[in-house]
């Protein structure tokens, strides 16, 4: 895929768009070989990957969260690492540590041994089971894409994509992620329970003798190029305005937010909405982002950034309901 920094004519750009749409469609088809259903989740994960953000997957055990991430690693030809988060996991277990090693001349020297975070695709399984100390060690890596050990800062490979999972039910002995860390995730995706038909397909497909082999369809450079292409796409002001109103509405300007929210979304949410809208448009073969894209991305972008207040807890209101009301309010305006 050619670099968009070079000057392109209309034909080249159109070709790039077509190619991007086709490759992404192929990626989805590859992932669909092992994942039954979960189209929204797959789309969200791909969008997060292209946007250079991180994705938090939440769902009950057995829904294929880990399988999805592992399959994605195979399909995009990226370096993949998995860390199972436990309460005794230490930051150095993720980031790496200075080790005393033989320097090859009969002496000893400290050398930095990279941890599993030095990869393209990191699966942080059950991220909320680690202690806050370990969780916060991941903060710098996610936000700055670098790791500082001692006095040395080590850059993480590009792209760096964290896919974290957590179980909403088993909260005993867990450490809920703090708001600051949640804000680092571009999307929070709910992995729903499959329908009966999907369940039948899962039961059929996963009990055969040999599982499907996934073919890599994308590499790191293509992913980065797609991200750049999306960033260069102009977006109409009314679409940005809608995204901004959505975020500012979560700070009490919307009626639902005033009633049920303790804190609203950060500016990162507006950025995520705009970038995600562009990528979603390109993924669907459109040259322009639309308000519909922002609406569709409002749930994964906002649901982990809105803090419910006591009234919402008491009324059994979830963040998705608040987002529903905010969208309805803005749509009517």
């Amino acid at each position: 895929m050619p670099n968009t920094k070079e000057s392109l004519d209309v034909g080249q750009l159109r070709d790039q768009m077509t190619a991007m749409t086709g490759r992404l469609q192929t990626l989805r088809q590859e992932l669909a070989k092992v994942m039954v259903g979960q189209d929204q989740v797959i789309e969200g994960v791909i969008l997060g990957l292209l946007a250079g953000g991180h994705v938090l997957l939440e769902g009950v055990p057995g829904l294929g969260k880990t399988l999805l991430v592992r399959s994605l690693g195979q399909a995009v030809r990226l370096q993949f690492a998995r860390v199972q988060f436990t309460p005794d996991l230490m930051p150095s277990d993720i980031l790496g540590a200075q080790m005393l090693v033989d320097d090859g001349h009969g002496g000893r020297a400290f050398a930095f041994q990279q941890g599993p975070v030095f990869t393209n695709l990191l699966l942080a399984d059950e991220v909320n089971r680690a202690t806050p100390k370990t969780q916060s060690a991941l903060l710098e890596a996610m936000a700055e894409r670098s790791v500082t050990v001692g006095r040395q800062t080590h850059q993480l490979p590009n792209p760096f994509f964290v896919l974290a999972t957590q179980n909403p039910l088993e909260m005993e002995g867990t450490y809920p992620l703090p708001e600051a860390q949640l804000d680092r995730f571009l999307f929070k995706l709910h992995v729903p329970f499959p329908s009966d038909a999907e369940l039948l397909e899962i039961a059929t497909r996963t009990t055969r003798s040999a599982p499907e082999e996934l073919q890599p369809v994308l590499d790191a450079s293509e992913i980065l190029a797609m991200g750049r292409l999306a960033n260069s796409c102009p977006i109409a002001p009314h679409v940005i305005d809608f995204a901004v109103k959505l975020v500012s509405g979560s700070h009490g300007r919307a009626k639902a937010a005033k009633t049920y929210l303790r804190a609203g979304a950060s500016p990162r949410a507006a950025q995520a909405l705009v970038v995600g809208a562009k990528l979603r448009a390109l993924m669907q073969g459109r040259a322009n982002a639309a308000v519909e894209d922002v609406r569709a991305l409002a749930y994964p972008v906002l649901r982990h950034r809105l803090l419910l207040n006591f009234a919402a807890e008491a009324d059994g209101v979830r963040t998705d309901m608040v987002i529903d009301q905010m969208l309805a309010e803005l749509g009517a305006a």
């Binding site: 209309v10 159109r14 109409a236 459109r286 040259a287 982002a289």
Partner: peptide, 29 residues
């Protein structure tokens, strides 16, 4: 139309940031 008409109208009225009226993105949209 996924805001195709509204975006095109905007591109007729204004120039998007950093892009000319005859930029590839503008023409494509």
């Amino acid at each position: 139309g996924y805001d195709r008409l509204a975006t095109a109208l905007w591109l007729v009225q204004e120039e998007p940031d950093g892009q000319q009226r005859d930029a590839p993105w503008v023409l494509i949209q």
